[in-house]
Amino acid sequence: MCGRYAMTLPHEAMVQLFDAVASNDLPDGPRWNVCPTTQVPVVTDGGGARRLRPMRWGFLPHWYATPTAGPLLINARAETIARKPAFRAACRERRCLIPATGFYEWTRDADGTGLPWYFRPSTEAPLAFAGIWQDWGPDAVATCAIVTCAAGPDVAMIHHREPVTLAPEDWPLWLEEVGTGAARLMRAAPPGRFDRYRVDRAVNSNRVEGPELVDPPIDEE
């Protein structure tokens, strides 16, 4: 799964990177500890121009009476996304890109305490997670989820799932700007896409923020 990530690009950099028009209500950044249910920047196809807009990270199916009426859907599994009632329409019609500069996964020590690992691109290029989105409720609250797949070699030693990350040449297909066959994009990253290292346990708290969260710990365990 992907349950926490970092997004440290300025709005202007995201606009340039994705060739998008920015909404004026984007969430403040940078963020080194993006948590579920918060507002995150998302790229959608705007019918001729891409839009960079805020969405709630936590997909809400239309039948939820309240945001807490069912499970918190922050991820959608690539293997079942086209069949699950919650996701199948969005998978066909409402795909998006979720910008990130890195993400976290956890192992556990002998006492069961979570040990966080930070994954970042092996190059300087930011990440674009494959996502889906949907408006929910009478106020059309925009919500999104990150598509995940079985982990590739860079992530598998730490966790069995990873977020689907898309190369720039694949963005038009995922956003339905060109062609068909986006399902083939839902796969693990090739070897060497990510660097990883242990970080401080402070990131285990969803109330902690700051660039020190992605610093390697002084004492490796």
Results as ranks from 00 to 15, higher is better:
residue 11 H to L: 05
residue 98 I to P: 03
residue 37 T to D: 04
residue 67 P to D: 01
residue 37 T to I: 05
residue 73 L to F: 06
residue 97 L to D: 01
residue 84 K to E: 03
residue 168 P to C: 05
residue 182 A to H: 15
residue 165 T to V: 14
residue 17 L to I: 05
residue 214 V to Y: 09
residue 30 P to T: 06
residue 12 E to R: 11
residue 109 D to R: 00
residue 188 A to V: 03
residue 129 F to D: 04
residue 154 D to A: 05
residue 193 R to F: 12
residue 118 Y to V: 05
residue 74 I to R: 02
residue 106 W to F: 05
residue 14 M to E: 00
residue 92 R to H: 04
residue 36 P to K: 11
residue 87 F to P: 02
residue 211 P to R: 13
residue 187 R to G: 06
residue 165 T to S: 14
residue 128 A to W: 00
residue 25 D to V: 11
residue 125 A to M: 14
residue 204 N to G: 02
residue 172 P to K: 00
residue 123 T to R: 08
residue 148 T to H: 03
residue 48 G to N: 10
residue 136 W to D: 03
residue 27 P to I: 10
residue 190 P to Q: 14
residue 59 F to I: 09
residue 215 D to E: 09
residue 45 D to E: 11
residue 169 E to C: 05
residue 114 G to S: 14
residue 24 N to C: 05
residue 26 L to P: 14
residue 3 G to D: 00
residue 118 Y to P: 10
residue 217 P to N: 01
residue 119 F to H: 01
residue 189 A to G: 06
residue 6 A to I: 11
residue 68 T to S: 09
residue 11 H to V: 15
residue 94 R to E: 08
residue 159 H to Y: 05
residue 70 G to Y: 00
residue 203 V to T: 02
residue 135 D to F: 15
residue 93 E to Q: 02
residue 214 V to I: 15
residue 120 R to P: 04
residue 220 E to S: 12
residue 169 E to D: 12
residue 207 R to Q: 15
residue 215 D to Y: 10
residue 36 P to Y: 12
residue 206 N to E: 11
residue 199 V to P: 05
residue 78 A to E: 13
residue 60 L to A: 02
residue 179 G to E: 05
residue 213 L to F: 12
residue 58 G to A: 06
residue 44 T to P: 06
residue 104 Y to W: 02
residue 50 R to T: 13
residue 161 R to K: 13
residue 200 D to R: 14
residue 131 G to T: 08
residue 198 R to K: 11
